[in-house]
Design a protein around this nucleic acid. Structure first.
Length: 553
DNA sequence: GTTAGGG
DNA sequence: CCCTAAC
């Protein structure tokens, strides 16, 4: 099952990254602006599973994947793979706080940086090269990386570059001595080229990326979990030796930006959480890179994370990369992670799609401000205060509070989705919810019920037990609401049973509920006061104080 | 991490 | 709702 999920992931990811643009120069381990929303997929559920398996998978990788240098020497045999790799592992973990080129001979393995000019020697049969190899050749030819995934394009481009001619056959891409060769006997060339080139390609990159992914995962613990890690898993390790697998893996690897990166981005913008979703190509280029990131060659493209959508706008073969990082929500740390995970697949997916649309329209010109608007426009409707309106109406006439309170009311709209809650930055840099989520009658009833059950003051308990389905209500919220209820209940004439006799039309709380609140309040007050008023009694009676609360059950 | 209170 | 002192 796990494998299935991974395979599916692979397929999907391949599609997603299919049109990845040029990522040259955008490479850094930590602040990589990459990543992609993985929400569109219906397979998000795999994330968590895969994530859990990561460590072991990595271990497998270490032992199974023949890592090869992508460096000029290029002829390393797999015999020393394990050695190099193990050394590399340690090194690759350092990027965040130290120089990558630690002087060790293996350091270059982390990122294939230099073009392998050896690839240009002799005859080159581009037809048989994988994308990855084509990229290598491309790099060797032009001295720069490309992330274009179009084989034909790559072949033509390379052929043109090598032959220094625009007259390139559309079907045959065998080059020898800088001249296009019409190959009649394909077999010979194929074998040679394939055998020689492929093994030196980016497996190391892949592996390192995984390490980085793990790192980043640890770093940004705040990220919403599921979508984040979706792509970070390496499953195909069993097939690592296969060129195709390696190519595909490399192609789809997109690393997600770290928390720090996101925050760096956000600093310059409006504080709205959605604001960080966008990083223009410009910002990427200028964003401060940690340590030696600058030295990194463009090869890192394949290292790019998954949190960013790389859109490639093809303009005459020139790729414009539009990374798209978005943050779903920034609000109080949520404790109900389950609810969050449950919700994301759908909600996030929609958001991601929406963002994509936005990009199509605005392109790289879109700044964070506009992104904010986009996100806001998107998320606001989903907050749907309306649903509560309807709900309130439905329950506005609770006849017998006693019965109602006893019932375990299930709020139809009581879904746990508190995502898409728009927050606004506060002066102090904090954030607060932009919209109040009006307390519905059912919520109030639940609150009252909870207080009656567990006692006022045990808010966390009430929240956990009675408000399990209302993830957006924090214990503080409950406390505040109760406070307000109390105030309201006592402000109003207790004896006035008229349901509509409330002072303020804006207060839809039925008198019956207020009455109940008042009763509870008095009971609780009595429960806590005895120490003073009947101190002697309680002192003599022993545990009466402790038993007062449970008594309300 | 919770709770209570003030803002 | 936010903020924060006090647990």
């Amino acid at each position: 099952m796990e494998v299935e999920g991974l395979l599916e992931n692979e397929k999907r990811e391949t599609h997603i990254v299919a049109d990845t643009g040029q990522a040259l120069g955008c490479n850094s381990n930590e602040v990589s602006p990459s990543g992609m929303p993985q929400l569109e997929s219906s397979e998000d559920s795999h994330c968590s599973e895969q994530h859990n398996k990561l460590p072991s998978i990595d271990e497998k990788l270490q032992s199974q994947i023949p890592l090869q240098e992508t460096v000029p020497s290029g002829a390393k045999s797999s015999s020393d793979d394990h050695v190099t790799q193990s050394g590399r592992v340690g090194e690759c973990l350092k990027p965040l706080d130290g120089p990558l080129e630690g002087g060790s001979s293996t350091s270059t393995g982390c990122i294939s940086s230099k073009p392998d000019f050896s690839k240009l020697k002799g005859e080159i049969c581009l037809d048989n090269l994988s994308i990855k190899e084509l990229h290598e050749v491309f790099k060797a030819t032009f001295g720069r990386d490309t992330t274009v995934k179009d084989k034909l394009w790559l072949k033509r481009r390379i052929a043109m570059g090598l032959t220094n001619s625009c007259d390139v056959s559309a079907t045959t891409f065998v080059i020898k001595d800088n001249k296009l060769v019409k190959k009649d006997n394909e077999d010979g060339f194929n074998n040679v080229n394939l055998g020689a080139g492929k093994e030196h390609l980016a497996v190391a990159v892949e592996y390192n990326e995984d390490l980085l992914n793990n790192l980043s995962s640890q770093i940004d613990e705040h990220q919403t979990t599921s979508e984040v890690r979706l792509g970070n898993n390496v499953v195909e390790n069993n097939f690592a030796s296969e060129d195709l697998a390696a190519d595909q893996r490399a192609a789809k690897r997109v690393r997600k930006p770290t928390k720090r990166y996101i925050e760096e981005l956000s600093e310059a913008e409006s504080k709205e959480y959605s604001g960080r979703s966008i990083a223009s190509t410009k910002s990427i280029g200028f964003r401060p890179l940690p340590s030696k990131a600058h030295a990194r060659p463009a090869r890192n493209v394949s290292l790019e994370g998954r949190t960013v959508i790389m859109r490639l706008d093809s303009l005459g073969g020139f790729g414009i990369q539009v990374p798209c990082v978005y943050r779903i929500r920034r609000s109080r740390p949520r404790k109900n992670v389950t609810a969050l995970l449950k919700f994301h697949p759908s909600g996030m997916g929609m958001t991601a799609t929406f963002i994509k649309k936005g990009f199509d329209v605005h392109g790289s010109q879109m700044d964070n401000g506009s992104m904010n608007k986009v996100l806001e426009a998107k998320s606001t409707p989903e907050q749907a205060p309306e649903q509560f309106v309807a709900e309130s109406k439905k329950e506005t006439t609770p006849t017998d509070m006693g019965q109602n309170m006893g019932l375990k009311y299930v709020d139809p709209s009581g879904d746990t989705s508190d995502d898409n809650v728009v927050t606004v930055p506060t002066a102090k840099g904090g954030i607060r919810r932009k919209h109040h989520r009006a307390w519905t009658l059912s919520e109030v009833m639940k609150l009252v019920e909870g207080v009656s059950k567990y006692g006022a003051g045990r808010w966390s308990e009430i929240k956990r037990l009675a408000f399990a389905s209302y993830s957006y209500r924090t214990s503080v919220d409950l406390k505040d609401k109760w406070r307000n209820l109390l105030k309201a209940s006592f402000a109003q004439t207790p004896t006035d049973k008229g349901a509509n006799s409330r002072k303020h039309p804006s207060m839809p709380i039925p008198a019956s509920i207020l009455l109940r609140v008042r009763e509870l309040a008095e009971m609780q007050a009595q429960a806590s006061l005895p120490n003073l008023s009947t101190g002697k009694l309680s002192a003599c009676g022993g545990r009466s104080v402790n038993e007062t609360r449970p008594g309300y059950l």
